[in-house]
Nucleic acid binder design. Structure first.
Lengths: 337, 337
DNA sequence: CTGAAAGCGCTTACAG
DNA sequence: CTGAAAGCGCTTACAG
């Protein structure tokens, strides 16, 4: 029913070796023969079986992506898209492994289902611990990371400087003259803990350097639906009121921005807002924010990974991607100045 | 280096058949033997090679998901998450095939790279044409769809009634007393064309039934960054001004909602807004909208697909998922009433 | 440039 | 309940 490489060989009057080469190493076959093989294959609706090829070559043609929360988040889905758009044309399938509970995570690293079944492992925004990295390292395939806290034991990575980026945001505000600045972060327990930590540290450093540390406040959003509501309530009740607020993510900033309007606080006249990510709606809404580009980071990390799989060395195994302060419409000098 | 089933068999003092059965059909092996095999396998870091198993069984253990735009959209990423969370534990990899240009699409259906390399094909929100479906059908694997215009030739599908759902939105507004209602849709050329069409038709029907067809306007967002800006500009310049606006998607509604605030129109006091999807931020922002649940739809479609792969018949091969009007804070009776 | 042959690591029908 | 053996569909080192 489905034709195999043997059927094609017979119909084309060549050996299976030649059929195989016509697909995988065309330069080894005469142009004439190759064309005939390809024509016959086409007529028979033949495709190379990836399972068979994988078995023979010892590669699984699969790459595992480890994430600690949902693939539906802005960051993860863009990284995934970037990775996939490089891996897919190269013949690799990208499989997601979601570790969103302590138990799922422990199970994954205990049983390591990807062993022997992945040609590389991509660790995405994961506060992965040394013991876990060691386990992955034992798999003898490249282990690469995107926005990982620490590159030890990794073969390649692509990162953003969260600390420095957040300082960009604060410096923008302080240089406008803001003195009472608040910071809103997601609750601990977030899978992005280390990134949250870095951003908070960047905020605190910048605020200290600006000499306004004693007038700043750090607010916490509890997990759940009302995260932004809680943040909003805290901002509105701060006394004296902050003239500017930095957010750990645009995802926190946008609902608060909306809520501020709702309660009659004009942005940026009454209060300035800076986000982080440049994610969904940020441009349309005019949110001033720190831009990072997870799609592009995914593309670049996939390239490095392919290079490693082929036994090469990426030019720049550990790359720091730039971020940019994007000025839009939610910041201005404080009104009382 | 990597141990195979033979190594395990030798160390455990059994045949490879028994090792294989211990993993894939445990009930065929005595508990004692199985435990010994599993212990040895564990000690040797052995995992079944999925490529080898796939070759032998004739299954590819891969499922293809066809989408016509990015995997990063709210709808697609949630469907993907739902599918993947069922397929992955069942041992299947889910591969994305993105056809976002006419050329990419033609190439895909001409070469059908998934032939012999997928155990099922999932068509996601695709205005797929009969000729294309026929090509997929020739692959001899289940072809299933999610939000497809027409279920002919499909083996299973999960859909939402876009037309009826939009009528829900309009009826809500007319029953509040709104008479001048506008509709905002994305430009044609969108990959979601058929869904956009259905929603527009639903809108027009509802408006006709309510007897306010002559007071309604349908606005179009051109593609690109300024889509919502253009819509906003049109809404603001309509004369007489509409008292309510329905949007094809929340993604269009949210930036416009923000823009209306910006230009001093109070929602819902001056103008009511209804979205469609219940997507990112809709709840936090209090957007009244039509809710659909792509994650749940993905889960259910994956279940049907698995059933079909195993040769069964899903209880309900073609399922219509409900949508709900979610009342929040962006609608009220018109102020001039 | 082409072919014959070995073998990748499993699963499963068959036999006991 | 267990094992010996065939074979899934390829790739590739070797020979010519």
């Amino acid at each position: 029913m489905k034709s195999t490489i043997h059927d094609v060989a017979r119909r084309a009057g060549v050996s299976v070796s030649t059929v195989s080469r016509s697909f995988t190493r065309p330069q080894l076959v005469s142009a004439k023969t190759r064309q005939r093989v390809l024509d016959v294959a086409e007529a028979m609706d033949f495709r190379i079986s990836r399972s068979a090829a994988a078995l023979k070559t010892g590669q699984s043609m699969r790459i595992a992506m480890l994430i600690s929360d949902s693939i539906t988040t802005w960051f993860n889905s863009h990284v995934f898209a970037g990775l996939n758009n490089v891996f897919q044309p190269a013949g690799y399938d990208l499989s997601i492994y979601t570790m969103n509970t302590v138990q799922a995570r422990a199970e994954f690293f205990a049983s390591l289902p990807v062993r022997r079944n992945a040609d590389a492992v991509v660790v995405c925004s994961f506060n992965i611990v040394p013991k876990e990295i060691a386990k992955l390292g034992n798999m003898d395939v490249p282990v690469v990371g995107i926005n990982i806290p620490n590159t030890d034991r990794f073969d390649a990575s692509v990162n953003v400087d969260d600390r420095q980026s957040m300082k960009l945001a604060v410096n923008h505000l302080t240089s406008l003259g803001h003195q009472r600045v608040a910071y809103v972060r997601a609750s601990h327990g977030s899978p992005f803990r280390y990134r949250a930590d870095e951003r908070l540290e960047g905020f605190e450093e910048a605020v200290k350097e600006a000499g306004i540390a004693d007038m700043t406040t750090s607010l916490r959003c509890p997990p759940g639906m009302d995260a932004s509501n809680t943040a909003l309530a805290q901002i509105l009740s701060l006394n004296p009121a902050p003239t500017a607020v930095c957010f750990q993510t645009d995802g926190l900033a946008i609902p608060v921005l909306y809520g501020l309007h709702h309660y009659g606080r004009e942005v940026p006249h009454d209060i300035s807002i800076v986000g982080f990510d440049d994610s969904t709606y940020s441009e349309e809404i005019g949110l001033t924010t720190i831009q990072q580009k997870p799609y592009e980071m995914g593309v670049e990390l996939a390239r490095k990974t392919l290079c490693l799989i082929e036994g090469g060395r990426p030019d720049q195994p550990f790359e720091m991607f730039p971020t940019h302060l994007v000025l839009r419409e939610t910041t201005q000098p404080p009104a009382d100045r």
